[in-house]
Structures are given as structure tokens and as C-alpha cells.
Computed example of a mutant assay.
Amino acid sequence: MNIKALEQEYLQNLNEFYDADEAKAIFNLSVTSILKITQSKLLTQKNKALSVEELNALTEVLNHLKTGKPIQQVLGETVFYGLTFKINEHVLIPRPETEELVDWILREVKNLKKSFLDVGTGSGCIPVTVKKHLPNLDVSALDISANALKVAEANAKFNKTEINFIEADILNYPDNKKYDVIVSNPPYIRQLEKADMHKNVLAYEPHAALFVSDENPLIFYDAISDFALKNLNPNGYLFFEINEYLWAETLQILIDKRFKNIELKKDMQGKDRMILARTNP
């Protein structure tokens, strides 16, 4: 079988979960990862016959994908902001919106040489990327999940970054350390929003990192804001990735707690997805 024929098999088998463009992108990622070739080389080798070993490996990937398992988990890794991160069922798959948040952080705090904390770190994509680009920062990362922290620690080591990892629940974490930057992409999806989500996200990604109750959906924003008021240095930075449907309510939390210079930012799709706030001088 050649690559072109296998592509048709992928597209036919994945149409239950993805549209044609998504399925083609997943096929391309599968082939370039398994065959260790570039996208441009793939385009010129569609008629290349696959060896038995190559075909078996790509068929195994397809068999996993047919269950709805995300390609990043099947391959065990993904690329975030140009860096490779290991991924498994214990951590969220990093999203493009979070890359936009990291880009904003790097632009805002590029001249800082002090302390940084990521709350709810998951795979560690935020602190590892920030540390890689701003090596003078003292970077810490917190998560309640020991399994997630194992993945984050592996990613820090793989990307040659030194991160201080903390296993703790931010809803009950009495930390006296002072930080210059606190960042969080906490759980923010309400139960009522599940119906609009892709079924493979619901089946394969950790619900504790995704969902909050309909009754108190901003519980983490409230708690992390209080933590920031106590633990941020003067003129400190607080960054959040937020639920696009709850931007006004999230903004109000920060206003009520008297943060300064609050800025709401849209992502590339025009959705209100990020907030920056500052503490008093």
C-alpha cells in the first residue's frame, strides 16, 4: 500500500469524529511522526510504497484513532509554542489559545528576572515554555494531580528547564512566598456546556482539569485572585485563560477585588479568552 491509499483509508475511518480537513491534518501528523519526515517531503511522496513495518505502525495509530482517542495521546506527544511536550490521559492537550496566552505573557514580562507561578500546570506547557524563553525567571508550577506533575516534570527535563513543582490544592494552599507573575488556565467549563464538546475530549481528557459546577463556575478564579492579592509583589501580574461565555463575570471578580490595569484580550478567533490584571504599586 502507498501513502495516498492509506490516506483514503484514514479519511474514511475518521469521518465519524472529524471533518475532512481535520482528518487530513491528523493523517499528515501521523505519517510525519511515524515516518520521521517533513510535511513538504510527505507531499512529494504520496505514491511511495510503505514497508510492512511502516504500514503496521500507521495502521495501529489508525486503530486507536477509530476509538476517538486524540492523535496527541496516540502519539504520546504534541508541539506547543515550538517545543515538544509529552502527553497522556492525565493531562489536558495544550490548545492554541494557551499558546496565545503564553505569547502575551512573554511580551509583557520579558524584562522581569524574578519569580513566576503557574497554577494548575497540567503538562507543564506554560511554565516550561516561559522558562525556556526567559531563563532568568525563577519558575514554579502547582497542580493537585500527582500524575499530572509526573508528566510536567518529564516535560521540564526533556526541554532542559528547571522548574519547582508543587503538589497542592490551590483552594487550600497556605503559601507565603511572593511572586511577580501568577498565571492560571484553571478548569472553567460548566457541566451545561458538555453537550457542545467533541466526544473524544469527553472520553479521553481528565474531567477534573476541564469542568466546574454550573452553580459555582468561577470558583478557581475567585480563589486564585485571592491568592494573588496575598502573594503577588507590588505591581505584580495576574494572567488568566478564561471561559469566553463568562468573561464579564470573571472581569467583575477582578474589579471587586480592586486589581488595577485590567485588560481583556480576544484570541485569534475573536473570542474573549484572556485577562491580565495588576496589583497595586
Rank of each mutant, 00 (worst) to 15 (best):
2 N>P: 06
4 K>M: 05
6 L>Y: 08
7 E>W: 04
12 Q>E: 10
12 Q>L: 08
16 E>Y: 14
17 F>E: 06
19 D>A: 08
23 A>W: 03
24 K>C: 11
25 A>V: 15
28 N>W: 00
30 S>K: 08
34 I>Q: 09
34 I>H: 02
37 I>C: 12
38 T>L: 09
42 L>H: 05
45 Q>H: 10
45 Q>E: 15
47 N>R: 07
49 A>P: 09
51 S>L: 13
52 V>K: 14
58 L>Q: 02
59 T>K: 12
59 T>W: 04
63 N>P: 00
63 N>K: 15
64 H>N: 06
69 K>S: 07
70 P>M: 09
71 I>M: 04
72 Q>S: 09
75 L>F: 03
76 G>Q: 01
76 G>M: 07
77 E>D: 14
77 E>S: 13
80 F>H: 08
82 G>W: 00
83 L>E: 07
83 L>I: 07
87 I>Y: 00
87 I>W: 01
88 N>C: 07
90 H>E: 12
91 V>C: 07
92 L>K: 03
92 L>F: 05
98 T>Q: 03
98 T>P: 03
99 E>V: 11
100 E>P: 09
101 L>R: 03
104 W>V: 08
106 L>V: 12
108 E>D: 15
114 K>C: 04
114 K>N: 14
116 F>K: 04
116 F>N: 00
118 D>Q: 05
120 G>A: 08
120 G>M: 03
120 G>I: 02
122 G>F: 04
122 G>M: 03
123 S>F: 02
123 S>A: 08
125 C>D: 01
128 V>Q: 01
128 V>S: 02
128 V>I: 13
129 T>C: 10
132 K>Y: 14
133 H>F: 11
138 D>A: 10
142 L>D: 11
143 D>N: 08
145 S>W: 10
145 S>R: 02
155 N>T: 04
155 N>D: 02
156 A>L: 03
159 N>C: 05
164 N>P: 10
164 N>F: 01
168 A>D: 14
169 D>Q: 08
170 I>Q: 00
175 D>V: 09
175 D>I: 06
178 K>M: 15
180 D>R: 04
182 I>Y: 05
186 P>R: 01
188 Y>I: 00
191 Q>P: 05
196 D>G: 14
198 H>L: 15
200 N>D: 14
201 V>I: 13
205 E>N: 13
206 P>E: 15
206 P>M: 14
208 A>N: 14
209 A>S: 10
209 A>V: 11
210 L>C: 06
214 D>K: 01
215 E>S: 12
220 F>R: 01
221 Y>N: 08
222 D>H: 10
224 I>E: 07
224 I>G: 02
225 S>E: 02
227 F>W: 02
228 A>E: 02
229 L>D: 05
230 K>L: 15
232 L>P: 06
233 N>W: 05
234 P>W: 11
234 P>S: 09
235 N>S: 15
236 G>H: 06
236 G>P: 07
238 L>R: 05
243 N>M: 01
245 Y>W: 03
248 A>S: 13
255 I>Q: 15
257 K>C: 03
257 K>Y: 00
259 F>R: 06
259 F>Q: 01
260 K>L: 12
264 L>P: 00
265 K>L: 11
267 D>A: 12
268 M>L: 15
268 M>D: 01
271 K>V: 13
272 D>S: 13
274 M>S: 09
278 R>W: 01
278 R>P: 00
278 R>S: 11
279 T>H: 07
